[in-house]
Computed example of a mutant assay.
Amino acid sequence: MSIRPETDEYPALAEQYVRLVPEGSLKIILQNQHDITRLLLGGLTEEQAAFKYAEGKWSLKTVVGHIVDVERLWNYRILRIARGDVRELPGYDRDIFALEAPFEDLPFIEVLKDYSAVRQSSITLINHLSESIMLRRGEFQNHPLSARAAAFIIAGHETHHMNVIKARYLLP
């Protein structure tokens, strides 16, 4: 799956993520993202993972956990669309998720293991869907959403947050 989704396949808010995905095979992009993220974050200490760059901001550990939770949500949306359940897909409240998530209490290595497990699940799910299934659409935020666009949003969302991590958390 190398063809970028059209703008009518996702809500306007998702454009910020879709545009961050480079050209190429999404399956390869997702695997490469995983490998780079694990390499970049795998050697961090608990102290580094607990770092917050400003008052009221999430720790690095929570940001990675947020990436995991959001990827799970988009996988659910992909699965619903792929299986033909095209009813309105629910949103979520990221602040409630972050507040209720266990990430701050987990060793960072466990958060990274969770990240890897979810990413491998994403890759497996996407690999098992045909091009025609990836073009199927459901409804999200009163707008059509294709399974393909949802997969691109996964990649773009991680890129967005990894850019923030590099700029704000991994100080030279």
Rank of each mutant, 00 (worst) to 15 (best):
I3N: 08
D105V: 04
L20G: 02
T37E: 10
L13A: 12
P102W: 04
I109D: 14
A155D: 04
Q120D: 15
P102N: 08
D114R: 07
I123S: 04
I96W: 10
R119V: 06
A155K: 01
Q33S: 11
A49K: 02
D114N: 13
I109E: 15
V86A: 12
E139S: 14
Y169P: 09
V18A: 05
Q16Y: 09
T7D: 11
L135C: 09
R87A: 13
Y92N: 06
E88W: 02
D8K: 06
Q16T: 10
L60Y: 01
G84K: 01
P144M: 00
E110A: 14
I3W: 04
L99E: 15
V164N: 06
I36V: 14
A117S: 14
H143W: 01
D114L: 14
P90C: 07
F108W: 04
A149S: 11
E158V: 12
L145T: 01
I96Y: 08
L145A: 05
P22T: 06
E104D: 12
I109M: 07
L106T: 06
A155P: 07
M162K: 05
F108I: 04
I153P: 00
N142H: 15
G91K: 04
N142I: 07
Y10A: 05
A12Y: 02
I81K: 03
N75E: 06
D8C: 07
A101T: 06
P11R: 01
K57H: 07
A150T: 06
R87Q: 13
L106K: 13
P5N: 03
G65S: 07
I165A: 12
Q16A: 09
A117N: 10
V64R: 00
I153L: 03
E9M: 10
D105G: 15
N163H: 15
Y92Q: 05
G156C: 11
W58T: 03
A117L: 13
R87K: 11
V111E: 02
V64L: 02
V86T: 14
P102Y: 02
W58Q: 03
E46F: 12
N127K: 11
R80I: 06
A155F: 02
L26H: 03
L30G: 05
Q16H: 10
E55I: 00
N127M: 07
S122V: 04
G65L: 01
A167S: 14
R38G: 07
I78P: 01
L13Q: 09
